[in-house]
Design a protein around this nucleic acid. Structure first.
Lengths: 185, 185
DNA sequence: CGCTAAGCGGCACTCGGTGCCACCCGCCAG
DNA sequence: CTGGCGGGTGGCACCGAGTGCCGCTTAGCG
């Protein structure tokens, strides 16, 4: 097992057992069988052990957006999100643990939203293209941020239901995008 | 001038002059004429010097939401935001500096979004009440987060226009809420 | 005049994060 | 076989944010 993956696994274990703040980097490193200095070579920050692959999604999202036809950004974003967030059943428990940590530890939630900024602007750019307006236009910017906000709500709702599976996630995504498409009035 | 206010003023000065990360708490404290330990008695974190009063808005927002009639959450939220975000001309430069810092320094942006969580849930609760649904319902949650997302976009757009005044801010708020009300499809 | 209570701030400590450098290893050229 | 060479490693010293402790000053009051 590669070092990074082992560290990640061990870290989620320790965080779940004794809490994020209560676990020092020294513990993570020695539990992973490496030196503290080496730990920081694999993860720039203690926070990044938890977030890790969450933003690999960005490249995938951009790609998926590019493949969607039509000039309805909502439909495109919905399809892109559904295609990017396809999880195998075996991945769900780890996903749950990650989401739980991100919701509980404010610092992690904060760091996660920074990651989402890339998504927001990618979505804004895509919407601007389909609407044929400037990407800096307020409507496009609001769209990008609102979509990410909706996705945060989806993950939060999914995490709150202990037995929700991958299909349930898809259903929630659909519901959220319906709301965005139709408006709130 | 009270200590907290003086520290805040001096801090914004120093951050603008030499950057956020490049300014240590020691500098802030001695520039404000207090000891380092005292600084942390007024601000739990270096970050909070910048964000400071930003979340005093929460209590005001909740109050303003409570005063809005009708069962359209978008209209209520729009009115509440307009009433809370009434800035005097003299406050605008300070607001600009704050917004600039929050946009530029990722750590500040992150911390700010944590503050917004209170707004998100307040808005969700209000919407749930007007729609007569559960506050935990996905639609209400998406609404709360989308509204805050839209407000972030508004502040960002306003900040990007160097000569925008308080009226321009109101116009942007209206535009953003129109988008949320009508939907994006 | 003495007592008390509250704000102040020095000191020492923990922990996250970084720069530097010595070390160990496998690899390749001579 | 040997002598360099390069990458991964991790120890060490350092910085800055944040915290607990405690002694000091000072203002207020009986």
């Amino acid at each position: 097992m590669p070092v990074a993956q082992r560290l990640e696994h061990v870290a989620l274990e320790l965080f779940a057992a004794q809490g994020f703040d209560e676990t020092t980097v020294d513990e993570l490193a020695s539990a992973g069988g490496v030196g503290r200095r080496t730990f920081f070579r694999y993860f720039p920050t203690k926070l990044d052990v938890v977030l890790g692959e969450l933003d690999e999604g960005l490249a995938g999202l951009v790609h998926a957006l590019g493949e969607q036809p039509g000039n309805d950004p909502v439909a495109a974003a919905r399809a892109a999100f559904l295609s990017v967030n396809r999880y195998a059943d075996a991945e769900l428990p780890a996903l749950r643990r990650r989401l739980g940590l991100i919701e509980d530890v404010p610092e992690l939630a904060a760091r996660a939203t920074v990651r989402y900024r890339g998504w927001e602007s990618a979505l804004a750019v895509d919407a601007a293209r389909r609407w044929d307006v400037d990407a800096a236009s307020l409507r496009a910017q609001v769209f990008g941020r609102a979509v990410v906000a909706a996705m945060r709500a989806v993950f939060s709702a999914w995490h709150a239901r202990p037995e929700a599976d991958a299909d349930a996630l898809g259903a929630l995504v659909d519901e959220a995008f319906d709301a965005l498409a139709r408006g709130f009035s």
